[in-house]
Computed example of a mutant assay.
Amino acid sequence: MFTAAWIASPQSPSEGFMPNWSREGFWRQSLRQVVRLSAGGGRLRVRLSHAYGSSPVRVAGASVGRTAAGAAVAPGSLTRLTFAGSGPAEIPARGEIVSDEVPLPVGAGESVTVTLYFDAATGPATFHAQAFATGYRGQGDRSADAGGAGFDAASESWYFLSAVEVDADRTDAVALFGDSVTDGFGSTPDANRRWSDALTARTKRPVLNAGIGGNLLLNDSAWYGDRGVGRLRRDVLDRPGVDTLVVLLGLNDIGFSETDEQPTYKPAPVLEAAELIAGHRELIRQGRAAGLRVLGCTLLPFAGSDHWGEHAAKVSHELNEWIRCSGEYDAVVDLNRALADPADPDRLHPSYDFGDHLHPNDAGYEVMAEVVSPHLQDTA
């Protein structure tokens, strides 16, 4: 039995506000990507997604191994990946493929490196924009290279890779579902200091990060992924081993109408609390229908940010009070009060502020994990 040990939510190829390789894709190049697992096992397999592709993508070679430094793989751990018994494989347009399982003992908190070689032009690549981890690109087939010297370009996005699963016999994974705060914006790159990483260190359960920077609860975006109520099944409910869903979503629906900085909607929809509450109820409905326990998080304080304004203040207060008091979630995690500045409860505490008054820093993400962990009972 396999359970998800790491996931990334697929996004449509786009440049957005950060440079990446998704629009140009890959040709006669190897792509090496590092991910940190939240569960261990003796065997693993990987999932590759081309959810936003209009034509198949050929993977001419693939491998996985334990991560060393940079683009290098630990000596003796590099293992060839096959798909349905074959080395080369095609990811179908708007589909995914799963590799055959391979023997590679790994532990929770350990990182693995996945290498993909594309001998034909991929076209625009399904990807996850904000990895906060460095990936590498090199010319030619380097899937069998343990060393990292041939990888001469770097990117902080993940491409095609959507999950790593291990043969752990457990069904107690926790999925964090949200926007850039869940994705880890403001955390130290390559340091694994996101909220999900901090929570992995505090609980014995697998913790999966289904955040997308800029994501909205109610509207699709060309830059920030499918709306939350539409992507929940693909990104969480269909993942093996999940039994708890933690929701932190809605701030961008509120805040994008207050700023001209976001390349999403001009003008952005101006929403009321009742609309967002309906969206949260839909997430609760979907989660419970799949047999999951569903926890709701209050939105973090964000006064002083570019998302703040008179209407945003009103709607965020109303939504947070509904999350706290309605009793519709199985449990409530009051992140708003935990990270607030006592001198001004609408603002992030200065000790937890990344600097934009919107996103936590590493210390803030640790507090988030500390607050939610009592709501998660360890089962291992």
Rank of each mutant, 00 (worst) to 15 (best):
M1D: 13
A4C: 11
A5E: 04
W6R: 06
I7Y: 03
A8G: 12
S14P: 09
E15S: 14
F17N: 15
N20S: 10
R36W: 12
G41P: 07
R43F: 10
L44T: 10
S49W: 02
S49G: 07
A51V: 06
R66C: 07
T67F: 09
A68Q: 12
A69C: 10
A74L: 15
P75S: 10
R80G: 13
R80F: 11
F83H: 08
G87N: 09
E90P: 03
E96Y: 14
S99P: 07
P105H: 12
V106K: 02
E110L: 09
V112K: 02
V112P: 00
T115F: 09
T115S: 14
A120H: 10
T122Y: 00
G123M: 04
P124R: 06
T126H: 06
T126E: 12
F127N: 02
A131N: 05
A131I: 07
F132S: 10
T134S: 10
G135V: 13
G138Q: 05
G138I: 04
Q139Y: 08
S143T: 15
A146H: 12
G150A: 06
D152F: 06
L161A: 04
S162W: 06
D167E: 13
T171Q: 14
V181N: 06
G184L: 03
S187T: 13
R202E: 10
P206T: 08
V207S: 04
A210H: 01
G211C: 09
G211Y: 04
G213S: 15
G213D: 05
N215K: 10
L217M: 12
D220K: 02
A222F: 09
Y224I: 04
G228T: 02
L232Q: 02
D235S: 08
D235Q: 09
P240C: 07
L245F: 08
L245K: 00
V246P: 00
L248F: 01
L249W: 01
G250H: 02
A268S: 12
A273D: 07
L276K: 00
H280I: 02
R281T: 09
L283C: 12
A289Y: 14
A290T: 05
G291W: 14
R293D: 05
R293L: 08
C297N: 06
P301S: 05
F302A: 03
S305I: 01
A313P: 01
V315G: 00
S316G: 09
E321N: 12
I323W: 03
C325G: 15
C325R: 15
E328K: 07
Y329C: 13
V332C: 11
D334W: 07
R337I: 11
A338C: 07
A338R: 00
D341G: 07
P345M: 02
P345W: 03
R347H: 02
S351P: 04
Y352V: 08
H359G: 04
P360K: 00
D362I: 09
G364M: 02
V372F: 12
